[in-house]
Design a protein around this nucleic acid. Structure first.
Length: 270
DNA sequence: AATTCGTTCAACCGCCAAAGA
DNA sequence: GTCTTTGGCGGTTGAACGAAT
């Protein structure tokens, strides 16, 4: 355990750093439950914790508060993160506001460990158009499919629904507002509202997936800023280099069961 | 069994803006 | 108007752990 000294008036208070002990967690939890959040610096002192206010705040928000959601990021949450990140970039706290029980730190870690890993595997920058296209055309449809499969409804041919205008459906009057855009479909139970940054935003995982399977590229580009450009003909599995990718997408573990290039190629042939 | 390597995530750091003195 | 304190945010680090060799 590390300490750092800090002058406070006449007192030289030694601040603890590093991992929190069970006793510290108890002290903080009991104090916050009795007195509420806020005034973290004085809270730390009054609770008898030799920690900075910032450290206490972080510990409470990221680990101790009772409404935290534990466990793996679900496909619905993944889809929402991808969607919101495409809109807002690295605004982790803003994104976290739309995932109840998840912290900005958790989402940031998810992005860095999972999403950036895929970009690295594809040998492209996470902010590049190519990677955004992969997210939009491979990853998100796959997530939608998984969500639909898990919910028991009939799976939609994602490629067709995204790219064939005849099967696409424009949002209609009365559909649910999502940011500046509209989407059709039922609301999920974890719908949240935020009125930050002047424009009211409503986002739900279900509405995002519905919108994704029901809408066309132009509309998607309008609402997300993605420049959709599904290739006219996809390369065969053995010809990935024509897309500039030498990565073997058949290998297992590309976001669990994310589509292999062969899956996509086969769909193209149907 | 021991060692190396890769991944995950809790915690820290630095910067910035808002509030208060 | 200026300085100080406080809290919030995004970026980064490092310990812990599991998998691979």
């Amino acid at each position: 355990m590390e300490f750092n000294g800090r002058a406070r008036g006449e007192d030289e208070v030694e601040m603890r750093k590093g991992s929190w002990t069970v006793e510290e967690d108890l002290l903080l939890t009991n104090y916050v439950e009795a007195h509420g959040e806020g005034r973290w610096d004085s809270l730390a002192r009054e609770a008898g914790l030799k920690r900075t206010g910032k450290s206490c705040r972080l510990r409470w928000l990221n680990y101790l508060r009772p409404d935290l959601r534990r466990g793996n990021i679900t496909p619905e949450e993944q889809l929402l993160i991808l969607e919101l990140h495409s809109r807002w970039g690295n605004r982790w706290s803003k994104i976290a506001q739309h995932l109840p029980g998840r912290t900005d730190n958790e989402i940031k870690n998810y992005w860095r460990t999972r999403v950036q890993k895929h970009a690295k595997q594809l040998r492209c920058d996470v902010d590049s158009k190519r990677f955004k296209d992969v997210v939009r055309h491979l990853w998100m449809p796959r997530l939608v499919e998984r969500i639909r499969a898990a919910s028991g409804s009939s799976a939609v041919s994602t490629h067709q629904s995204v790219n064939d205008p005849s099967t696409c459906k424009r949002p209609e009057e009365g559909d649910v507002e999502v940011g500046e855009a509209k989407c059709a479909g039922p609301e999920s139970s974890n719908m949240v509202r935020s009125s930050s940054e002047s424009s009211e935003v409503q986002v739900s995982t279900a509405s995002v997936s519905d919108r994704f399977t029901n809408c066309d590229d132009a509309w998607f580009q309008e609402t997300t800023g993605f420049s959709a450009c599904w290739p006219e003909t996809l390369p065969s599995p053995g010809a990935c280099d024509s897309w500039g990718w030498s990565m073997d997408l058949d290998q297992s573990g590309w976001e669990e069961s994310l589509w292999s290039m062969e899956d996509i190629w086969l769909q193209q042939q149907i």
